[in-house]
Amino acid sequence: MRAFLGMMLLISLSACGGEASENMPDESQAAQDGTEKPMPVEPDGGIGDGAGPIPGTEDGDAPQADLIPARFHGIWDYEGGTCALESDMRMEISASEIMFYESLGIVSGTRMEGEDVVVTLNMEGEGETWQQATRLSLVGEGEELRLHASDGETPKEIDEYPAKKCPPTGDPA
């Protein structure tokens, strides 16, 4: 009796699955008969599911969890430096990492303090790993724009070695 009930259950389930698959065209059938519809895309680049943009991304510069704001992105070097790859004060800042001369910091957190951002970095370089907090501040405008980097665990300090923005090298920053 138990075997009979089990067989009936299996037959019922397979019949339900057959109906569903008959009523739903598979991808190859849709592609052949031209019924395939492209996924809609929203004006902000969303996938068409009706969800709005991710909070904080509307202006392209607002901080998001674990991302460095766009205004800090780029290649920076000491204001007296050459911006060359071998410059030991050069750094490349992107949304998710900061590349220093002989180390790399992957962003694990960010927090805003006024116009500054304090970035928590998982660092790796010269065979070692560590974590550090770095405060990034922008001072000045235009040709006089300077990046000040200081210890993120202490109150804001004046950077004795401010960095100028380097011209793009064609490599993504």
Rank of each mutant, 00 (worst) to 15 (best):
L9I: 14
S96D: 12
T35C: 01
G18F: 13
R146V: 11
F72S: 02
W76H: 07
G142Q: 08
G125M: 05
I54H: 12
V139A: 03
E27W: 11
M1S: 11
S12M: 10
T82A: 12
M1N: 05
E86Q: 13
G127C: 10
A173Y: 10
G34I: 04
E157Q: 15
A65D: 11
V117D: 02
G34A: 04
D59F: 09
P63L: 12
G18N: 04
I11D: 00
G81D: 06
T154M: 12
S21H: 02
C166Y: 08
A3I: 04
Q32Y: 03
V119S: 04
K165N: 06
E86H: 12
G81A: 13
T35S: 15
E143W: 03
I68V: 13
D61T: 03
E58G: 04
D33P: 00
M123S: 02
C16I: 14
P162C: 04
A173P: 00
E92G: 06
L67D: 00
E19A: 06
E157F: 04
Y78I: 10
A15R: 06
D159H: 11
Q32W: 05
A51P: 00
H73R: 08
E128F: 15
M89L: 14
G109T: 02
C16V: 15
A51S: 15
L5T: 05
G80N: 09
V41L: 05
G52P: 10
A133F: 03
N122L: 09
S96H: 08
L145K: 14
P40F: 09
E128Q: 15
E36H: 03
Y101V: 03
N122Q: 11
P43G: 11
S103D: 05
D49P: 04
F100L: 15
G46H: 14
M8H: 00
M24R: 14
S14K: 06
G45N: 11
W76G: 05
T129Y: 07
S103L: 07
K165C: 05
A31D: 00
P38H: 04
G142T: 02
D88Q: 09
A20C: 08
I98G: 08
E128N: 12
R2A: 02
S28K: 12
I47R: 15
E42A: 13
Y101A: 10
E42Q: 15
S103G: 11
G114H: 03
S150K: 08
G45P: 09
